[in-house]
């Protein structure tokens, strides 16, 4: 028995411009950028890429939250309790290190897959959220075509993007607008052979209307809140494309300093 038949839905936002990643080939393939009010599926290439996939989703969510007209948006991260042990505890420090504002974030830890989907559908009704990240592990049989269509409709109504992480799962048919695959990639080493910025191997597996099967290697720049293309030959230290070499040697001084002071 329910008391109310249908929940009231917050007023839909106007059609927002898609979020442009400032990588020409990526934006062109997507027809302008990643759209708000849509569902984007992000698959991990391997279960070991879970943290890279999650970080990529986090980076996208933070990029999508940088809207001039609505500052300080909240990101909601939904997780399932039984996977906490293999996935690890979400750290606000790491969130801030990726350039986010964890104090604006909400973390929902739910008991099972069904409540995960329900919570996402419920949260999609609130237009105040900047983005929702749903971290799904395993096959998730509850997420069938009907369920994903329901999420898409809710997202369209409120204009909130839903990033659906699928870890340890094979791509299945869904109503999502785009489907991505993320793998971690070797980063450009900093001086002193230190691991560099977060780097991802990104594949656009499918999108509803547009080209697919494209591949990028991207680096996340947390200070500017955008991606930039990383050289594909990550195994050697390569000269940066956008800055002179001398500048580069100055910049990581802090890192080196911190290393020794640690």
């Amino acid at each position: 028995m329910r008391i109310v038949d249908a929940l009231s839905v917050s007023a839909a936002l106007g059609e927002a411009e898609p979020w442009a990643s400032h990588i020409a080939s990526l934006d062109e393939a997507l027809g302008g950028g990643l759209g708000y009010g849509q569902v984007h599926e992000i698959y991990a290439a391997e279960p070991d890429d879970a943290s890279s996939t999650a970080s990529f989703a986090m980076a996208v969510a933070m990029g999508m939250c940088q809207r001039a007209d609505r500052p300080k948006q909240t990101v909601l991260w939904l997780r399932e309790r039984r996977w906490l042990k293999s996935a690890g505890i979400l750290q606000a420090n790491g969130w801030a290190e990726l350039g986010g504002a964890p104090e604006q974030g909400l973390v929902g830890v739910v008991p099972d897959t069904l409540s995960l989907l329900r919570a996402a559908a419920e949260a999609l009704h609130c237009g105040r959220l900047g983005a929702i990240i749903l971290e799904g592990w395993g096959k998730m049989p509850a997420l069938d075509l009907t369920a994903s269509r329901r999420l898409v409709l809710a997202a369209e109504k409120s204009g909130v993007p839903l990033l659906l992480l699928r870890i340890d799962a094979t791509p299945a048919s869904s109503a999502a607008r785009t489907r991505w695959q993320v793998a971690s990639a070797p980063s450009r080493a900093l001086p002193g052979n230190a691991p560099g910025l977060p780097t991802f191997d990104l594949t656009l597996l499918r999108q509803r209307s547009g080209p697919s099967g494209l591949h990028w290697r991207l680096e996340w720049d947390r200070d500017r809140h955008n991606f930039r293309e990383a050289p594909l030959s990550g195994a050697v230290v390569s000269a940066p494309l956008d800055r002179p070499l001398a500048d580069r040697e100055n910049a990581p001084q802090q890192t080196g300093g911190r290393r020794h002071a640690a």
Partner: peptide
């Protein structure tokens, strides 16, 4: 909400996003 300290500009993330406990 209580604000979190922001990391200094430049440089890679020094703290992980997921922690095992």
């Amino acid at each position: 909400p209580v604000p979190w300290p922001q990391p200094p500009e430049g440089g890679p993330p020094m703290r992980p996003l997921f922690l095992f406990d």
